[in-house]
Design a binder for these strands. Sequence first.
DNA 1: AGGTGGATGAATATGCTTCTCAATACGGGA
DNA 2: TCCCGTATTGAGAAGCATATTCATCCACCT
Lengths: 145, 145
Amino acid sequence: MKTPQDAFTTYLSEKNLKMTPQRRLILDTFIDEKQHLSPEELYDKVKKVDPSIGQATVYRTLKLLVEAGIVESLDFADGVSRYEVSWGEEHHDHLICERCGKNIEILDDVIEKRQEAIAKEHGFTLSHHKMYLYGLCSKCGRKRS
Amino acid sequence: MKTPQDAFTTYLSEKNLKMTPQRRLILDTFIDEKQHLSPEELYDKVKKVDPSIGQATVYRTLKLLVEAGIVESLDFADGVSRYEVSWGEEHHDHLICERCGKNIEILDDVIEKRQEAIAKEHGFTLSHHKMYLYGLCSKCGRKRS
DNA sequence: AGGTGGATGAATATGCTTCTCAATACGGGA
DNA sequence: TCCCGTATTGAGAAGCATATTCATCCACCT
Ligand SMILES: [Mn+2]
Ligand SMILES: [Mn+2]
Ligand SMILES: [Zn+2]
Ligand SMILES: [Zn+2]
């Protein structure tokens, strides 16, 4: 499978857009950080390599990466949007501790199949879904204040 | 079971807060509209009855209603927060058409049980979850542009 | 009546995200 | 190589939903 970088280059040229040093740096930095990053956090990382970069460019590039199907946007309901590199990765959902923020990636075939079935029952063609499970992890559950 | 209004009154007095005409009007209006309302939409409805009401009061009251467990906040990824009255209603999730906005409430026992099981496997105590299925409804799917 | 604490509306502030704009970089053709 | 059109960029301003501030108001108790 193509690397995310190659996929991005391909996507850009298809749209008559250009691969630039800034875009390359932003994607490379994102891939290095295997995390659920907010635009601001990614901007901070990128600035360490190229302090002249503007945060508008980070927002714009994230938008492009989502359109290109290389990155997915997440929603942990913590006030900022978050992203993760999804290219070449298996789909998964998230189990989140509301106290400490611990975040576990989960995947359940039974659920995924039922989601498809439910959509079909209603005549829908499913394009994607979001599922977030919120609760307390074992550590935080014990010392519940 | 208590009505949402009674539940709200109870909650307020427990917290040494007061039931006011504004709060009563906001909840009554919300209950009349069996919809997924945004704060702005609710504000517009309420203003028709009492034009002197402030939108800060709508935001504040919605927050209280969520805390009281009478209302739930939703996230349809359309740029605004949305709410629905959940008191006395069965939990459900949503199936959303990305083209026309059609919104179907769904509930699947298999999924709900698996969610609990997954959380347990990871030592989590689940407090709640969000699940949104996005796609195209039968109408919009046919005339795909 | 006077006092106390919550509630309110208008205005202002906040925080994340997007847009505007002038300057710059790039790439293909003369 | 120079020219030209287009895409890109960074800085700052603007948008937009939501939260907060603050002076006033009101309900209730003594
Ligand atoms: Mn899933
Ligand atoms: Mn559910
Ligand atoms: Zn935890
Ligand atoms: Zn539709």
